[in-house]
Nucleic acid binder design. Structure first.
Length: 467
RNA sequence: UCCGGCGUAGCUCAGUCGGUAGAGCGGGCGGCUGUUAACCGCUUGGUCGCAGGUUCGAGUCCUGCCGCCGGAGCCA
């Protein structure tokens, strides 16, 4: 009886030499030898490496099938696992049968030919790019990081809360919203005044895709104490950068009976735990990233998990920027928002590691962030990572109803629109805090991939939502 | 949205001063070899993004449009 084995099981030695096994996967390369055999490299996604299959010319379908195999063909190969006599691999599979499950109908135009491709090109063939070394590695690291994040929270008493994707809250203030409607766009119902009559829409009012689960998850925080969201988030901003997606994944923990220091501790602990997990669980993929994508990929993570993050207040950051003697494109003074060039300096040149910047001027932050005693700043924090910029943004939340109302009015919003959010402050309010971690940005940071469009399977950006 | 750059073979690119379209890789054929991003030879392969304009002649110069990429802003 022959068992189907994942390639990783064979390569790591779980299948003893001499054992018959079947592997199922896709051809990466084929090399023929006049010694009377062909070498097939087969990958199945179970690990970075492909397995070398030795296909002897004595196979009945050697001429008809094996010699016609090209990159991308799907195969099922049964053979004997054996030690490899040549350098390059410890074990290989001596084929007894090679079944072609699916041919590549035209090797000349197969989009993933065995050569280097630019990432820009591969985005155009996103349905096939997962077969490449790079995107297979990204997929495995992405999976590993997601599971590590869930595991961290589970081990620390957090509950995963499924906050809604659809929302009718139109004033979250975190970005442009995608409208969701079942109205006939070509024949919109109108009110007497001529406006679109959203009373006839699916929810009886305007609806959108969520830009953050935070406000919702705060409600569960004030019941279960430690909670988090992990799901897709949507922003209809016309952002065209290597760090922005219209649909991205965000992790938003929220902790009760906690202040900004607890929040920063959590952010640092979570990042260290989950990045350490990548190093432990995906050494093969990370070695590839360090070799081919970004030489610092492994050393950067190793440094991150063993050293503490730098921490400074916004005021200290401004002072450091002023002392730098740099000629900033955007002049620095207390009260201005930190620009990309400032954030880059702080983590890449000033601290040489991730930096937590806290206590920003209230004018440049959201209304729900807790007002500090100085009445000028709020208990906000950003975590800045070298090479990628802001990967975390968070705050201690304003738990005092009178102060919250004052802030809502100050920024021009209507307290009546936040009735359930205000109720949390009316009924058993407690200090609490939380943050948003950009999951895709974290993958980019960990792998050294330069563009978040290449760390998510099917990127959505302005003007682009194919596949 | 703003600034900059780029659109030439399946892919990555070169193409000089405006003068009949090139290379590498891939694919095909052959050679060689327990090979390993193999190597050697031959070969295949083009709406030069689209539409106008200038010119005897445009891949090349001009105008408009479309698409993509990078940076900025917004943010995660």
């Amino acid at each position: 009886m022959t068992q189907v084995a994942r390639i990783v099981e064979i390569l790591r030695g779980d299948v003893a030499p001499g054992t018959r096994a079947t592997v199922e996967g896709w051809i990466r390369t084929r090399r023929d030898s006049k010694a009377g055999l062909s070498f097939l490299h087969v990958h199945d996604g179970s690990c970075f490496d492909a397995i070398q299959v030795v296909a002897p010319a004595s196979l009945p379908n050697y001429e008809s099938d094996v010699l016609r195999l090209t990159t991308g063909c799907a195969v099922a190969i049964t053979g004997t696992v054996s030690a490899s006599p040549a350098a390059g691999q410890a074990v290989e599979l001596q084929a007894e049968s090679v079944d072609v499950v699916g041919w590549v109908e035209d090797p000349d135009t197969y989009p993933i030919s065995p050569k280097r491709h630019t990432f820009e090109y591969l985005r155009e063939v996103a349905h096939l790019r997962a077969r490449t070394n790079t995107f297979g590695a990204v997929a495995r690291v992405r999976h590993s990081l997601a599971l590590a994040i869930h595991r961290y929270f589970d081990e620390h008493g957090f509950y995963w809360v499924h906050t809604p994707i659809l929302t009718t809250s139109d004033a979250e203030g975190a970005g442009e919203l995608f409208r969701v409607s079942t109205l006939d766009l070509a024949n919109l119902p109108r009110t007497a005044g001529g406006a679109v009559d959203f009373a006839q829409d699916f929810f009886g009012k305007p609806a959108y895709l969520t830009v953050s689960g935070q406000l919702n998850v705060e409600t569960y925080c004030l019941a279960l104490e430690r909670v988090y969201t992990f799901g897709p988030t949507f922003r209809a901003e016309n952002s065209n950068t290597s760090r922005h997606l219209a649909e991205f994944w965000m992790v938003e923990p929220e902790i009760a009976f906690a202040d900004l220091d607890d929040n920063a501790d959590l952010a640092e602990d979570l990042l260290k735990y989950s990045f350490r997990a990548i190093l432990d669980e995906r050494p093969d993929d990370m070695a590839f990233f360090a070799e081919r994508i970004d030489k610092q990929a492994v050393s950067r993570l190793e440094g991150l998990v063993t050293s503490s993050f730098a921490r400074m207040t916004y005021s200290e950051a401004i002072a450091a920027l002023e002392r730098s003697g740099r000629d900033w494109e955007f002049p620095v003074s207390w009260g201005v928002a930190l620009q990309a060039e400032h954030e880059r300096y702080l983590c890449e040149e000033y601290a040489h590691r991730p930096v937590v910047v806290t206590d920003y001027p209230k004018e440049i932050k959201a209304f729900y962030m807790r007002l500090n005693d100085d009445e000028r700043t709020v208990a906000a924090m950003d975590v800045l990572a070298p090479g990628i910029g802001e990967i975390i943004g968070g705050s201690q939340r304003e738990e005092r109803l009178d102060v919250l109302d004052r802030r809502i009015v100050e920024v021009g919003l209507d307290p009546a629109s936040y009735s359930w959010y205000r109720d949390l402050r009316r009924y058993g309010t407690v200090p609490h805090a939380g943050f948003g971690l950009g999951f895709d940005r974290s993958i980019a940071y960990a792998t050294g991939m330069a563009n978040v469009r290449d760390v998510i399977p099917f990127p959505r950006t302005p003007g682009s939502a194919d596949f």
